[in-house]
Nucleic acid binder design. Sequence first.
DNA 1: TGGCGCTGTCATTGC
DNA 2: ACGCAATGACAGCGC
Length: 748
Amino acid sequence: MLSLKKYLTEGLLQFTILLSLIGVRVDVDTYLTSQLPPLREIILGPSSAYTQTQFHNLRNTLDGYGIHPKSIDLDNYFTARRLLSQVRALDRFQVPTTEVNAWLVHRDPEGSVSGSQPSSGLALESSSGLQDVTGPDNGVRESETEQGFSEDLEDLGAVAPPVSGDLTKEDIDLIDILWRQDIDLGAGREIFDYSHRQKEQDVDKELRDGAEQEDTWPGEGAEALARNLLVDGETGESFPAQFPADISSITEAVPSESEPPGLQNNLLSPLLTGTESPFDLEQQWQDLMSIMEMQAMEVNTSTSEILYDAPPGDPLSTNYSLAPNTPINQNVSLHQASLGGCSQDFSLFSPEVESLPVAGSSTLLPLVPSNSTSLNSTFGSTNLAGLFFPPQLNGTANDTAGPELPDPLGGLLDEAMLDEISLMDLAIEEGFNPVQASQLEEEFDSDSGLSLDSSHSPSSLSSSEGSSSSSSSSSSSSSSSSSSSASSSASSSFSEEGAVGYSSDSETLDLEEAEGAVGYQPEYSKFCRMSYQDPAQLSCLPYLEHVGHNHTYNMAPSALDSADLPPPSTLKKGSKEKQADFLDKQMSRDEHRARAMKIPFTNDKIINLPVEEFNELLSKYQLSEAQLSLIRDIRRRGKNKMAAQNCRKRKLDTILNLERDVEDLQRDKARLLREKVEFLRSLRQMKQKVQSLYQEVFGRLRDENGRPYSPSQYALQYAGDGSVLLIPRTLADQQARRQERKPKDRRK
DNA sequence: TGGCGCTGTCATTGC
DNA sequence: ACGCAATGACAGCGC
């Protein structure tokens, strides 16, 4: 599998680079995200939100039972990853989105961009997060969020002071990406850290020697704390203590993701000065055009059965100002309706005309040369018979038309207008209230999307979380606002996590292990951690920030006696002993039971080891029946605890996804309504123009005596072959009725 | 003091 | 048969 991954990665990269060099755009992400999930998983590793982290493998690695194969050939892997990132950058460069920022940041050798663009990290995230509105495609969304997340870290890395003299920033970024993927494969960052591995070996050795359990609690993070350093749970890097503050300040400076995407784009992307990307505008215009075409088709099949003409002061015209130039309008043209042959071929009053069937109407008064395709091209090639029928046929007065001249588009528009307006009314009745209407009007100007009360929208990873706390792929719900509280608590959580629950004795401060902790981290543990396996999947919910529980029932009675907990600030400054005491106080009940029963291995191993190794471990020790029973209970409870956390997280994700779907649907609804309004506006303009043209043409017609035709007696008719005929109203009336029946018969 | 939310735990079910 | 994930239900706890 691994060799296949490497092979595919390198081969695909080389091929992709070649294609890129010759100008072929290769969308790697497309293959990595949606089209070929297996390939994507081969390259990127499983990233499903619900993918169970294989702690078995993790344990295998950490316990020295095996070494993750990826640690063997890191250079080649880094090279491959670098190439992949470059290819991605090439791909992104063609897209005028905020991702260009990331490309610039990534390319900047000096890393000086970050200071002036503190929001670029979230800009990346938002650029991918915009996909959230596209539908419930969790797979794509997940991967994109993941991608944005990783790039977020890249930017943060650009901000961060150099932490390693050997590795370049790019390598560090690659390590980040690699490690995040390895999390899914069951490996921790520790495998890349020689010192940590050394520590692991030491710890393991101590365990086998029957060392004191206290020795197993302090971890790398504790030492880092002692050095007044903070360890990034993601990267394993140590930062000066003030660094997280910078991060938090950055994240606080970044607008919340709950804000409308357009606004965020404005704020975050200096390249996108418009309120909406050109693609969106074009997309909306295409939508409108398609709707227009569909409506035109419907109109063509309909007849002049209803001659509704909206009064001048109708809500549509008053609420929504007409667009000055509607392309639809510009296409409407009767200029080629030449009158040249009109006077020559007039045989209007011949009896043949009266008796001619409608189908033969093309022989009547061909006003337009047959090669004229203006009307055909405008309205399609369908018959518009009845288009020029006077409104009197239906007994409806035309307010906008002259007293004599008919409404040429009455029959064309009325049905559609009624339909659309009724839809509008329905929409309004269904909750499209005036407030929304005003929003809709604003969108006509800004087109920045409806603000759908996203204040309660699902939250997501904050950038600070990504830089310091979270450990693996982001969840599908990580799409909106960031939580500032998480950033504030991220630093302190290092010293606290891992102290309780089923944390390993050897990776006390390892965040992964700490995820299983039950804890005392009001912010992180309650809001940012839901799953033992994948804490980053849990959204930090800003609207849950008022919840700050402190479940001290996990503490042993002795710990409960000293109820006053040291604040995190004191923890940072505290000595190892104090931390040990504090960690000791936070042990779960099972931890205390295990200690009381002198279980010779950690609860973490009890819970997370695979069955075979678990049984093997049990067989290594001479354990009493009570001890065995307790161990099995601990294992059962621990697994169930994780399962419960996953279950609850899944529930929450489902709810959040549903919420997001509702918002998307509301957005779509608003967009459709907007398009309908635009469509009606265009229809109205088109109607007015055709009507004026009709009046102009009809007014210029003269009979043999040079007198104008009476609109009450004659009407213009647009024949199927493109010609315009002048026919008597009686004939037009019959024809209209005949046309009226046809669609009804079809419906039957 | 009751309600509420979070969390751990148990029992059960299905794979 | 066994292990385990998933889940409903319940209790404990803090707010």
